[in-house]
Each structure stands twice: as C-alpha cells, then as structure tokens.
Design a protein around this nucleic acid. Structure first.
Length: 895
DNA sequence: TTCGGTTGCATTTTT
DNA sequence: TGCAACCGAA
C-alpha cells in the first residue's frame, strides 16, 4: 500500500475506537457510493473526517485524490483543521472547500476553454440586479410589473435546473437574438417569452463583461466538464474520492456536477482488484445529509437528491446515524414531535443517552420589545447566577429584521453580543465601491463595476455622461471602458464632460499599471485605490457621523487584504477579490473553542450546523415563524417546520421558546397569534414562565367572567407569581393601549426596567436543575393551550371555544363580521388578529366538502385540523394550489 | 448635475 | 419605521 509519507498513519483503533457501531461502519465502508443519513448532532463531521483519514491510510489514497465539499467556507476551514490534527499539515493542501470555491478553482484553471478569460469577475446579487435593470430599461420592460428580483429568481431557477439559454429561447422566443441593438419588447405575448429574452440577453452581457454570477460558477463548470472531454478526464483521474456534506441542500446543477466529476456516467468499469476506488472507473462518492434539515428549497435545493440517492448511484448503501450526542432527551422529544408533522418523510427518531434534562422554557411577551427585554435579562441572570458564559448562548430568529429589537434589548441590559449576518461587510456601500474599483482594474470589460465607480466620488459624470458613452460604445460593439478611453471621439461631447472623463480614464490607467506591478500585494493596491480615487478623502471631509465608520470600514478592508496576503502563498489581486465574493454570513462566526464573551444573534438559516448550550428561539408566532409567505403552501410550510427542527436541535442543554403578542411590522403594530409549531411541541415538555400575553389574558379574563372560565382550563398564570393579574392589567387598561406609541413609551423601561421584576421567575426556577421546576410545570399544564380555546374533542362543547372569541370582542363588533373589515371610525386601534373570528366551526367542515374563498374561488377540503381557535383547514383550490388557511380568519364560506 | 425633499413601498431565508 | 427612488429647484 502506497502511503503518502506526509500523511500521519493512524491505527484503526484511533480512527474508530471511540465511535458507535453505525459511525464506525460509515468510516470504514468500502464501496462506490455511500449515503450517511446523519440526524442532527449525530457526529457527522467527526465521521466525515475520520473517513477521509481512513481512505488515506487504509485505502492508500493520496491527499490530492480527495475532494471534500462543505456548505460554507467556515465548515471547510473547520474540517481542514480537524484533518490537520488527524493526519498532519498535508490537510492544508487538500481540496476541502465549498461547491462554489471548488468551481472557481476549476474555472480559473480551465475556464478559457469555454470563453472565460482569467481574471473573470464574480457578480454578487446586487451586481446582477443592476445588470437586469439595465437590460429591462433597454428593452422597455416595466420594472414595476416585473421586478429585477423576480426576473433574476426565474433566471436562477433555470440555471439551477441546468436549463440553458438555447433551450428557453427555442421554446419561448425563437426569433430573439441576444445583443440586438434597439430591441424593444413592447407588448409581450406571454411572460415566459419575456423571461427567456432577458435570460438570453443577461447571459450575453455577462459574457461580454467576462463575468459570472453565483449560479454560473456551478453551471459553467458543468458545461466545461461536459463539453471538454479532456478536462473532464483530468478531474476524473484526479479525484478518486468525493465527499459531499449537507447533501440535502444540493440543487440539480450541483448534483450533476458531482456526477460529472465522479464520472458516474462515463461507463468505465472500476479496476477489479483495487482496495479503494483504484485508478479508473467512477470515483467513490460519500454524501452526508439529513432530509429533515433541508432548508434551502428557495435556492433550488432539491430534497429528492438525497431521497433518491440509492436509485441514482449503483451499489449505493445507506447508513443511518440516529444517536444524538448533543442535546437532552427533552429537546430531542420536542424536535421529533415537531418534525413528525411533516408528511411523506421517512420516519426517524433521534435518541440520546444524555438523559431528560431541563424542560423547555416558554415565555409569551406582550411586544417584541418586551420579548427582547425578557430574553436579555434572562441571559444576564444565566450569566451572573448560573455562571453561563455569554458565548454559550445564542439567540435565533426567522428573519433578519427581527434582530433590531433583540439588539436593543441586549444593549439596554448591558449584555455583550455579536450579530451574524444582516448587511454583510462586503455589501456595505463604501466597501462595495472600493471593491468595484478593484474589479474594474482587474477586469476593465466589467461594465457594471466600471459604471458604478464612474461618478463615485462625485466628479460631475452623471447619468448623461454615462448614457452618452454607453450608446457610443454599444454602437461599435465596444465595452464601456473602451468608450471612456476614446471619449474624445464621441460627437456631441462637451468639454465640461470630456475633461472629467479624461481624468477618470487617466486615473484608471494609472491604477491598472500600479496593480500590475503590485499584483502580489493586494493590500498595497487597496491603499492606492483608496488614495487615488478620492474615496477616502471624500469620506474624511464629510461631517456626517456615519461616514466616520465608513472610513473605518475601508481601513478594515485594507486589513483584510493584508491578512489574505499573508495567509495565501500565491496571493493575487484577483484571488483576493474571489475571497470577498464568496464569503457567507457564517464565515464571521468565531471558532468553536473561542470564548468571545458575547451572545450570538443570527437567523435560523445561518445557525444550521452549529450548536450552543443555551438557545433562544424567538418570534414563535404565526406570520413570523412560520413566515407569512410560507403559511399557506403545504410544501413551504414543511420547509418552515424543518427550519424549526433545525432551530430546536441547535440547543444542547437548555432551550427557550418565546413569542410576542404584538409585533411591529412595516412600522405598524399588529397582533400575532402563537406559532402553530408551539402547538406541535408536547405541552409537558414546556415550562411556561408566562403562557399568555397581557392582551390575551385581559380578553380571556373577561371571557372567564362571563363564562365561568370552565372552558379554558387553568393556566399556569394563576400560580406563577410574576404573572399575577395585578400590575399588568393596569398597564393594559390605560386608554392609550392600541395606539401606535404603545410598546416602548408606556413601559419600555420604567415599570419593567428594573430587573427585579423579571427576575422573580428565575428566583424560583434554577435552569439546569429540575427540582425547582416541579412547581410550575406540574401546575402549569392543566389543559390544552390555555389561550386558544379547547378543541372539540374535549368534554367542553365546541361552541364554547367560539364564544371565547366573540365575548372578548363583542363590544366592538356588530352583526356580521368580515375579516377584512375597515373600521368606519378612524380609531387608532388596529384590527386585531385576536378579534378576528368569522364564527366558523371546524367541526362543520369535512374532507371532501366544497368551499368558496373570496380570492381563490371554489375549492375542496383536503384536511381539517382541530386546534380550537387555531383550527386549520387545508383546501385544494385547483389551479390556485393547495392552501392551508386559518379557519377563523379565512374569507371562506361552506357550500 | 446635484441636492434636498417627499412619497411610496417593503421583509423571508443565502452560496 | 426606515430606506430608496423619484421629482423639482438651483
């Protein structure tokens, strides 16, 4: 067996001695195709790295024969790090990277073969949008009706599905030729034609600019491998083992890429007596994934890639890892219960040897601000009283917009935090401007970036100058930059425009020369650009305090470049730009072992693959999570649920779930119903510190008065001390409630601000013990969910749950109620979701019934879910699709 | 051409 | 609420 002398040989004992049966099997598996079904926290990274070491030492593979694909750069770096400790520094030279980085590397080497010149530019989403907008304007397309975003989404779909321009044109617009000057779409027969035309023109202009977008990195690599047999041959001989992590999130293009790289379809037979993949035949493939954690369908991820793996790859074998080493049984029970609501999945149950652990803590706040406030103080208490490190706590949310209130809460409570994601560093205006200079220097054909910097900083070259140069250059088939260079030939050009144009051209020429001389020192080029362009000067002169931080960002960009320069042996300016184009949010995350002393805030999507001892899952409301745009579609709702599953399984010891009854969205306060996912977690797993928000309690309180309270069961509120009526409903009886100023001014910091109040819950409930929990949890779950009424299957009559809604708001309602009522009086009180009730009873609906919906028309009931006030009805509206509707608010009528 | 003001619109999630 | 795009004036 030929072993690379640089690879540290590990004994089988070292590689599998500490693994469980399934893990050990996965590490050792000998065969062309292996799917490791790795549930959350089942130690898949460990298995993956051990398997690589196994392949190297037991199958006798060379490090250069391995291609390992991860989802983010950070995951790649981490895997490389772990490999280093296992097999030595050779790991640093191995191909361990994301799909996108690997493709860039391949395209840099052989892209010329398909017309990509070296130094090609990678456009980010903003660049792509500018390009589409440009095209839309040229073609006279109404961008209000067809937003660049929409168009790009469609283009991206085409690309992820490997549908080329040629095919779409042939099908929808056979007469269109890209690059045709003066083309006007005018009135399009159908939208498909429009999409096909823009797609074609978009690709055409990308090619002219020597640029690619994110999707192209994959697509064009596939194209390269498919059209250039010798190139494909080279990589097939090189990579004998391909390992793909997070396989459930691959799209069709990536799937095909893997097949092409592996040579699965080449028809070659493997060497008969090889120990491993040998020298010929398809490479051996290992994929790792968990279909329950597929959360990127919106980006084209195709869950069937993983589901069909065994059919797709001959002699494939599946090994499931179901033992979880991360979380407590309570947390896993919650996760299992939630994900079990998804239909059509292979049943799978995670288990742990770790024991039950603490219950999940629930909290219902009145507003998003108060939710943040409670979380912040809970975290501080955990830190100060329980000795929990801040860096062991993560706060997660569905959408970036939610981070703001959480940040404010943490700041007020003096809890240090770091925010991951949001507007990325490289997307900030000033950083993007500086990068645009660099791109334009490396690749002057790049019209998008060249145009961006033409008048930044201001040099009197506005829209008019730009369009004159563009028109002149277009007519002659030249690039924008060539137009600028030859500006004095343009007729009708005034000296007033010509002079700054000439100065701009001279500056860029000079910068290009400088960059050519200092190609190995990108940081020098950055410095030169900042100085020569006047970018820095303009910001330094400004009095706007924001510009101060912009200066700092630019200086940080320079530091990043310097760092890249030091860490990269063959550093180039183009290489530096690549690294900036392919960063992900998660790449900002600190190393696992590092104690930053800060709480981490991030979206659920960026949290994938991470784990924290303490996790806060926030904004558990209908419309927030699940997101309103995903609530009505069954498959999108399933994806939301998988996202919830991902969130829950991030927690190791303690999980918090919180919601707000009122949340400001688009500047308006609206009332939020509890998330249906809360209903899906078994009640006995949750210890509600506060089950109902004040608003809700006030209503149910009235209901109790008139109804005797029998139908609601006893909430835990009655014995929890903190949430006794007194002190709370006073606030809510204030006449100002419901107005826009509600949230913060009335009690943002004053009555609730002192931490003693919020702490009173903590006094009696230590987090990681279980003894003191008994009190609240045993008494706290007397019935079904307290606030939403009781389901029809309970002893209570179904009617009573209806009365709940109607008594609560009877005063504000008269006669027939529609859900889209516009209040005749200009009362400041918003139409409340809690008030809404069309008085339909879920028990009146049965599968197969016909209903009529105000906007979707006629439909057939597919399913009814009785959840009392939260009852959901699933209806097939034919061409309008299958919708899940909340019965209480749906504008439907039984026929 | 630039600046300043007003209006109108928007929120998924991201390599 | 906050930002971006558009419009009109200097």
């Amino acid at each position: 067996m030929h072993n690379d002398p640089e690879v540290i040989v590990r004994s089988p004992q070292e590689l599998i001695g500490d693994l469980n049966e399934q893990q050990a099997q996965a590490v050792q598996f000998r065969g062309p195709a292996l799917l490791i079904g790795a549930g959350a926290g089942s130690g898949k990274t460990r298995v993956l790295t051990r398997r690589i070491a196994w392949i190297l030492t037991r199958f006798g593979a060379w490090p250069s024969q391995i291609l390992a694909i991860t989802f983010t750069n950070k995951a790649a770096a981490e895997m490389r790090e772990r490999l280093s400790t296992l097999i030595g520094p050779v790991a640093q030279r191995m191909w361990v990277s994301t799909f996108h980085s690997a493709c860039v590397r391949i395209l840099r080497r052989d892209g010329e073969r398909i017309g990509l010149k070296s130094g090609f530019t990678i456009y980010d989403t903003a660049d792509c949008e500018r390009l589409v907008k440009l095209i839309a304007t040229d073609f006279n397309i109404d961008v209000k009706r067809y937003t660049p975003r929409q168009i790009l989404a469609r283009i991206s779909d085409y690309k992820n599905g490997l549908t080329g321009v040629r095919e779409t044109l042939a099908q929808y617009a056979p007469d269109f030729r890209p690059g045709t000057r003066g083309f006007r779409v005018g009135h399009i027969g159908n939208v498909e034609e429009l999409y096909a035309i823009v797609y074609a023109e978009y690709q055409h202009r990308l090619a002219l600019a020597n640029a690619v977008d994110f999707d192209d990195l994959i697509v064009r690599t596939v194209e390269l491998l498919r059209t250039q047999p010798d190139v494909a041959e080279y990589y097939r001989r090189k990579f004998r083992y391909i390992l793909v992590d997070e396989y459930q999130d691959t799209n069709h293009a990536q799937y095909v890429l893997v097949r092409e790289l592996a040579g699965v379809d080449s028809g070659e037979r493997p060497s008969p007596d090889a120990v491993g993949a040998g020298r010929q035949g398809p490479a051996w493939i290992t994929v790792v994934g968990d279909s329950d954690q597929s959360i990127y369908a919106f980006r084209g991820a195709d869950i069937s890639n993983i589901q069909d793996f065994e059919q797709d790859f001959p002699d494939a074998r599946t090994i499931m890892l179901e033992q979880n080493y991360r979380s407590t049984q309570t947390i896993l029970d919650a996760a299992n219960a939630v994900i079990a609501h998804n239909e059509g999945r292979k049943p799978k149950k995670l288990w742990t040897a770790a024991g039950k652990g603490a219950p999940i803590t629930g909290y219902a706040a009145d507003t998003a601000q108060l939710e943040a406030h409670w979380i912040a103080h809970e975290i501080r208490w955990l830190h100060e009283e329980e000795g929990v490190r801040y860096s062991d706590v993560a706060v997660m949310y569905r959408a970036n917009a939610q981070s703001r209130s959480l940040e404010e809460g943490l700041i007020q409570a003096h809890v240090p935090y770091q925010l991951i994601g949001g507007t990325k560093f490289y997307e900030r205006r000033e950083v993007k401007d500086a990068l645009a200079y660099l791109q334009a220097i490396v690749n002057p054909a790049d019209g998008i970036n060249m145009r961006r910097i033409l008048n930044v900083p201001k040099r009197g070259l506005g829209a008019r100058a730009e369009s004159m140069v563009t028109a002149w250059a277009d007519e002659r088939g030249l690039t924008f930059w060539q137009g600028v260079e030859q500006a004095d030939r343009i007729e009708g050009m005034t000296t007033r425009t010509l002079n700054p144009l000439k100065r701009f051209a001279a500056m860029m020429t000079q910068l290009r020369a400088f960059a050519a001389e200092h190609d190995r020192q990108p940081s020098q080029v950055v410095a030169e650009v900042l100085a020569q362009s006047g970018l820095l000067e303009e910001l330094q002169k400004s009095t706007d305090p924001q510009d101060q931080s912009r200066v700092e960002n630019l200086s940080q960009l320079q530091s990043v470049a310097a760092e890249y320069e030091q860490n990269t042996p063959d550093a180039t300016l183009a290489g530096f730009l690549e690294t900036t184009a392919l960063v992900a949010d998660s790449d900002q995350l600190p190393d696992e072992a590092e104690d930053t002393g800060k709480v981490t805030l991030m979206t659920l999507h960026t949290a994938k693959g991470l784990e924290y001892p303490v996790v806060f899952l926030t904004g558990m409301e209908q419309g927030t999570f699940p997101h309103s745009r995903a609530m009505e579609d069954t498959s999108e709702l399933s994806e939301e649920r998988r996202l919830a599953y991902v969130g829950i399984t991030r927690a190791r010891r303690q999980l918090y779930i919180t919601r707000a009854a009122v949340r400001a969205q688009w500047g308006r306060a609206s009332e939020m119903m509890p998330s249906q996912f809360l209903d899906e977690i078994p009640d006995e797993l949750i210890d509600w510190k506060r089950r109902e928000a004040g608003v809700e309690r006030m209503r149910s309180g009235w209901g109790r008065g008139s109804d005797g309270g029998s139908s609601y069961g006893r909430g835990d509120d009655w014995d929890s001390g903190l949430d006794e009526f007194g002190g709370w409903d006073d606030d809510f009886d204030e006449p100002s409630y419901g107005g826009s100023s509600y949230g913060r001014s009335s009690y943002g910091g004053s009555s609730y601000g002192s931490s003693s109040r919020s702490r009173s819950s903590g006094d009696t409930a230590p987090r990681f013990g279980s003894a003191a929990r008994e009190r609240s949890s045993s008494s706290g779950n007397g019935g079904a969910h307290f606030s939403y009424g009781v389901s029809g299957s309970s002893p209570t009559s179904p009617r009573s749950s209806l009365r709940f809604g109607s008594t609560a708001s009877a005063s504000s309602r008269s006669g027939k109620v529609t859900t889209r009522r516009t209040s005749p009086k200009s009362s400041p009180k918003p139409v409340s979701a809690l008030d809404k009730d069309n008085r339909l009873d879920i028990n009146d609906f049965h599968v197969g019934d016909k209903v009529s919906h105000d906007s979707f028309g006629l439909g057939t009931v597919l399913e009814t879910q009785d959840k009392g006030r939260n009852s959901i009805i699933t209806v097939d509206f034919g061409s309008d699709g299958v919708k899940r509707l909340m019965l209480r608010v749906a504008p439907i009528e039984k026929l």
